[in-house]
């Protein structure tokens, strides 16, 4: 008997979670945030989104409910549950929620949706797209200027177009400053587990470092920690992703490729509150500082002024259209 009950609890836990979560009665705009598997403390992509809504909560007085989907199949029911509870704005974080948003949003035309990293063409959905290749280009240039061995590394979570876009921009940036640079590139896995497998990321990093790479850029969600451990143990350099990760291992993290999901998410809350919500695709590139590289007290010493000047020059050239950064999405089309 107990067993049967246990199994039932297991099977229905995501549903219960979904129904229990949106149950607050605060005034102001009601915003729901659906995070993907990484969870709000992945120190990376989801963390950035969570910072954005937290800022909106503090500054705009919105009421916020968030939930971390532990399973890709939960997205649709979570989004629907929030919509049924009459949340004004529902923000879906991550490319894996695209199909769920496409299904749920048309059924609730009065409510607004936003999705990060995917294009969903519906009248009540705003798609927040980041020009990852531009930011990656800059950290690639930094890697190229910093590397002494002439070999740099890249570690991606899964071999998907989004991550290939990071890689392509990164290589192009490094080649821009050092045409002879060599790249070692690895991917962690073929399932969603790749985003939370730091042990595997560490092995990949050790293999790349011992193969001659001295700077490695990883775009692998919560697995990034494995790269940072390897950098610390072997006294090499790493580059973080999405959020500013410089603080995690000061002295070993050269810089971080910033993806300002926080600003984009904050803006959509603000626009919705002031009745200025607009659907369609919002692109965040270097020009709008939607992507960037991080400089703070933790990595100042690793980035000499000469390097910073060159990178700033490249940044200006990209914004001015003088340099065209290759985009994996365009290549596919």
């Amino acid at each position: 008997m107990i067993l049967r009950r246990l199994g039932w609890i297991g099977a229905s836990c995501s549903l219960v979670f979904a129904l229990a979560a949106p149950s607050c009665f605060a005034a102001g705009l009601k915003v729901a945030l659906v995070l993907d598997k990484g969870g709000k403390d992945d120190k990376s992509f989801n963390s950035a989104a969570f910072r954005g809504v937290t800022q909106a909560k503090e500054e705009l007085g919105i009421s916020l409910k968030y939930v971390e989907a532990t399973d890709d199949n939960a997205f649709e029911s979570l989004l629907r549950a929030f919509a049924q509870k009459k949340f004004d704005l529902i923000i879906a974080v991550g490319v894996s929620q695209a199909d769920a948003v496409k299904k749920v949003a048309p059924k609730f035309p009065e409510q607004k949706f936003a999705i990060v990293d995917a294009e969903v063409d519906l009248p009540n959905v705003r798609s927040l797209i980041f020009e990852e290749h531009e930011g990656s280009f800059l950290v690639g240039a930094i890697a190229g200027l910093t590397s002494k061995t002439g070999t740099i590394g890249f570690i991606g979570g899964m071999d998907i177009p989004l991550i290939r876009r990071f890689e392509m921009g990164y290589v192009a940036g490094a080649k821009q400053v050092n045409p002879k640079i060599k790249l070692k590139s690895n991917f962690i896995g073929i399932t969603g587990d790749a985003w939370h497998n730091p042990a595997k990321a560490k092995e990949l990093a050790i293999a790349q470092y011992s193969g001659g790479a001295d700077v490695i850029f990883a775009a692998a969600g919560a697995s990034n920690g494995g790269l940072f451990d390897a950098a610390e143990e072997l006294k090499k350099l790493a580059i973080g992703v999405d959020s500013n990760q410089n603080w995690i291992k000061p002295g070993y993290i050269l810089t971080s490729m910033l993806k300002r999901v926080d600003t984009a998410v904050y803006d959509v809350c603000k626009d919705t509150q002031s009745g200025k919500f607009s659907s369609g695709i919002k692109r965040f590139g270097l020009a709008s500082t939607g992507v960037d590289y991080a400089v703070d007290e933790f990595n100042e010493k690793l980035l000499p002024p000469a390097v910073r000047e060159k990178v700033e020059k490249l940044k200006a050239d990209i914004i001015a259209g003088k340099i065209k950064v290759p985009d994996y999405y365009q290549k596919k089309k």
Partner: peptide, 17 residues
């Protein structure tokens, strides 16, 4: 051995199968 040897913290679902 995963969390304090191969990695440097516990992270969610880090056993990864």
């Amino acid at each position: 051995s995963l969390s304090i040897f191969l990695a440097s913290s516990f992270s969610r679902n880090m056993t990864a199968g």
